[in-house]
Design a protein around this nucleic acid. Structure first.
Lengths: 352, 352
DNA sequence: GTGAAAGCGCTAACAC
DNA sequence: GTGTTAGCGCTTTCAC
């Protein structure tokens, strides 16, 4: 169907190798030869078949980035950062979503797309250490996110316990005592929310407060609707928290919506702190205080790590890498009430 | 490096063809032969090399979906829908972003990744008809979004003029007369905002109101920050609109933030209508009235169209397809003030 | 039902 | 500098 090197060679009256040299900008081609070949290329509309090149070279230049949900702005923003970081190394990114299903996480890190992607960056939710240990695939894998594994792969995640403690500390400093945690799942201690919940427990204990487990609210998912539902449930069973620490910004935003609907003022009656620092948290009627992981660093570290392994460079064994984070205080906890500062607000997403 | 069919064949003491038959679930293999080969496959940890298969078959099963900005939830949500629609046809999606740069849009629809992707769904911003006409690539291309081209490709977009008119009609029905439009770019009549702006003009004119061009505010980009800046500019030059119709939800949300900061009440003082119906618009302190394009339909139509052409089915020539849309009235225009209805809010994004 | 051989389009050795 | 050749791993005739 397509035009191949052979066709071009025939047309230009040269050998395949010469055409290949021209296409690959080999220095050992005379200008007039280059011109002659180029003309044939243009006339025939030749385009190199990357699949064939990949087969020959044993690598494709594609890395996959698999996240639970693209609809969560945190991952969308992270994906953008990964694409940019990869582009700097001439890698293309295949963005994938697992919909938070264990089955799809397994598929992605197993044989799926074997030899089509050179490496994988995966943000798992349900994967177990055993799944990882049993992995057949030999292509490099970098893990992202809150879960920690005893498996021989690079893992990149901020210190979730410490970050959560910082958030809770902030609420305690504000004089809040009945701090609810939104986002744990029942009986799933190894679920993502685990570490942040532990931070909540530890910081409360450190402040001499016995963590009241009735203030921990189970959610089904990690979206705005879950945050809204959690607050509804909480209020209906008569709890009156003076602060909310949510597993992520989406849950926090959903919670804020319901709190406001119920006539509770933020932050006067209830202070709210989220996690992720998605752009949206800077633009609500009440801006959201949140733990801000350094997404650029996360993306860069993950891609660099992967590319190093891919390039065959001697790289140290699997590591746990801890990117930075910071607590961004905004209106929802009574912080600086002046709205988004110019430099933060300057980035604009493109339209449709 | 990898284990190939040949290795497995050797191990099992059969021919390559037989192994291939087993791998591809060909019916013409005896059970015991299948078992024997399967054992060799398991022992060696064989995985088919998809690159080689692709080269041989001339197709890869990958389609690309290129958007201006993944950080815009509209595109992130659409990407999720495209991935799901493609999965139903056993296609994998390569999500790409062009960062709204013409250069990258050109690259994506030209030779880029030639033979790696079978087809492309592109949402362009800066591409011109001429660029499309000059396209060399023969792989199928489906165009999405507001811009319309005189080029031989399928184009899928809601009727932007009519949708915008519906939005403005709604504001007029509410008794608003000074309706500002946020999101046009100066002197770029063919820019995306063009059709929605035309809808604004037409509907005002139809209502006997001369469109006041000083109520059209230019923005640099399409994000929350742009909406915020636009309103600031508008108010500072002394305008007092009683309604805002924004090019998209992000601009609308940014605008709402600034309006509230300036002490203007929504919707009492200023009614706001957006465009896109991103999930966020259902969860702010004030929920956002917006034009809701049917994203599922857009994704499905685009993928189906592409897959039909890919499968070599006889398909009618290039078409303009118009998916549905509806105006969702929420609090920002004084609509039903009861917050997100359960069925809409039920969808939860996964965590990190 | 299974085997042998050709070739998808390309690159990398190696000759000339 | 340029041409020739041998595969990369797979599927696909076509024999047997």
């Amino acid at each position: 169907m397509g035009v191949s090197l052979k066709d071009v060679a025939q047309r230009a009256g040269v050998s395949i190798k010469t055409v290949s040299n021209v296409v690959n900008n080999s220095p050992h081609v005379t200008p007039q030869m280059r011109a002659r070949v180029q003309q044939a290329i243009d006339e025939l509309g030749y385009r190199p078949n990357l699949t064939a090149r990949h087969l020959r070279k044993g690598r494709t230049g594609i890395i996959a980035f698999a996240v639970p949900e693209l609809g969560n702005p945190y991952f969308a923003e992270l994906a953008g950062a990964v694409i940019d970081a990869a582009a700097r190394h001439d890698y293309t990114v295949l963005v994938d979503h697992t919909a938070g299903l264990r089955e799809r996480e397994l598929l992605v890190c197993q044989e799926f797309r074997s030899h089509v992607i050179d490496g994988l960056i995966l943000s798992p939710i349900h994967l177990e250490t055993a799944d990882l240990v049993a992995r057949h695939e030999t292509s490099p894998l970098v893990l992202l996110g809150e879960r920690e594994y005893e498996a021989p792969y690079d893992q990149i995640a901020i210190d979730n316990v410490a970050a959560a403690r910082t958030a809770v500390r902030h609420l305690l400093d504000l004089g809040r005592r009945r701090i609810t945690f939104l986002g744990s799942r029942t009986g799933q201690e190894r679920q993502p929310a685990h570490l942040r919940l532990r931070g909540w427990r530890e910081e409360l204990a450190a402040a001499g407060i016995t963590p009241d487990e009735s203030l921990v609210v189970t959610t089904e998912g990690y979206g705005r609707a879950d945050g809204a539902a959690a607050v509804t449930a909480l209020l209906e069973r008569g709890e009156r928290p003076d602060a909310v620490f949510a597993y992520n910004d989406l849950i926090a935003l959903g919670a804020m919506r319901t709190l406001t609907e119920r006539g509770l003022r933020i932050p006067e009656d209830v202070a709210v702190v989220g996690f992720d620092d998605i752009e949206e948290s800077r633009y609500g009627a009440t801006t959201l205080t949140t733990v801000s992981p350094d997404k650029q660093a996360i993306a860069r570290l993950a891609v660099d790590r992967l590319v190093d392994r891919l390039s065959g460079k001697p790289v140290a064994g699997p590591q746990r890498i801890r990117p930075g984070y910071r607590l961004v205080v905004r209106e929802s906890s009574g912080g600086a009430g002046q709205g988004p500062p110019p430099e933060e607000g300057a980035r604009g997403a493109a339209g449709d």
